[in-house]
Design a protein around this nucleic acid. Structure first.
Length: 308
DNA sequence: AAGACGAAAGTGGTTGA
DNA sequence: TCAACAACTTTCGTCTT
């Protein structure tokens, strides 16, 4: 998982690579390509191969540190030391409770084992950085301890936890992507996500459209200039209060679409809409607002004239 | 023929009484 | 708890390139 593994940009051969550790992305400053895919792919295969005991233990070990729920419950029920202070009846009660505790904790542990395996599967499918994986494991563990999984499928809670963790680490994935990776319906993920974050009191800031740009632009093979242009546009839009209440992916898509237009790298609305997971209509609406408020018409006309 | 545009109706979620 | 509401989608017809 080190940047040394990728020294040249596979697209343009440039060596000006920028490693964003948090997001697990390597970005080529020459052509704007996001190389995260390749990078994570390699490390994953490596892991598979040399997954001898120590490695695999370590991987399950990290999230499992969040499984120390027995401390909490243990003190609640009582420790051995307390035993001496109890009478006969209380002793029975004590053992009964201990038995319950044991049952509960093994149930939770079994659940966690399954869930964390699922979590890891989805996470690696989406090529998420380790920090997000751990965060979501933490969230899931909390959810299990609070009994929030009851009545919901384990998988959907896992997906919800992942989504929340992504948002918190500003590595947003769309609900569509989560849905594809986990096999859970978009609605369901959204529901459990909202439920879990509300119950756990996790506050999520609305995600920033600019966070999506790098990934979308890379998927569309747009240049670095177009990327920074669209970020610039989005920042202006935020000042004009065009962004509040709107879906961030729609704004990101529209910004990218306009920027591509201005830089003469025109993509169809359909193409942009597909990678951003919104419809053309939404892009059109945002796009229209952008033109109205930011007076970008001139710049677009310039490009058109140039072409002629 | 493909893409862009916009109107109209439908969906799921939020909000406020 | 329910109705109004905003954002977004789906669908479809028309215009532009």
């Amino acid at each position: 998982m080190s940047p040394e593994m990728v020294k040249k940009c596979p697209e343009c051969g440039g060596i000006n690579l920028f490693w964003n550790k948090d997001k697990g992305e390597i970005i080529c400053k020459d052509c704007g390509l996001v190389i995260e895919d390749k990078m994570v792919d390699f490390t994953q295969e490596w892991r598979e191969f040399e997954s001898d005991v120590s490695d695999s233990r370590r991987r399950t070990g990290a999230p499992m540190t969040y499984t120390q729920y027995d401390q909490g419950i243990g003190t609640e029920v009582g420790r051995k030391a307390d035993l001496y202070q109890l009478g006969g009846k209380d002793k029975n009660k004590f053992f009964r409770l201990r038995k319950w505790q044991y049952r509960i904790s093994t149930a939770i542990e079994r659940n966690l084992k399954l869930a964390l395996a699922e979590l890891k599967r989805v996470s690696s499918f989406l090529k998420l950085p380790k920090s997000v994986e751990e965060e979501s494991a933490r969230i899931y563990t909390l959810a299990v301890q609070r009994g929030l999984v009851r009545g919901r499928s384990m998988e959907s809670v896992v997906a919800g936890a992942l989504y929340a963790a992504c948002r918190r680490h500003e590595v947003p994935r769309t609900l569509d992507e989560l849905s594809e990776a986990s096999g859970i319906e978009k609605k369901e993920i959204g529901r459990t996500y909202r439920f879990v974050t509300r119950e756990l009191g996790i506050n999520i800031l609305p995600s920033n459209p600019a966070d999506y740009i790098a990934r979308f632009a890379s998927a569309l093979k747009l240049s670095a200039e177009t990327q920074s242009k669209s970020i610039e546009i989005i920042e202006k839009a935020q000042k004009e209060e065009l962004t509040s209440g709107r879906g961030p992916t729609g704004i990101a898509a529209a910004g990218l679409y306009v920027a591509a237009l201005i830089n003469g790298e025109k993509k169809t609305q359909r193409e942009v809409a597909d990678v951003a997971g919104v419809t053309e209509v939404t892009i059109r609406n945002r796009y229209k607002e952008l033109l109205d408020k930011l007076k970008l018409e001139k710049e677009i006309k310039k490009v058109k004239k140039k072409k002629k």
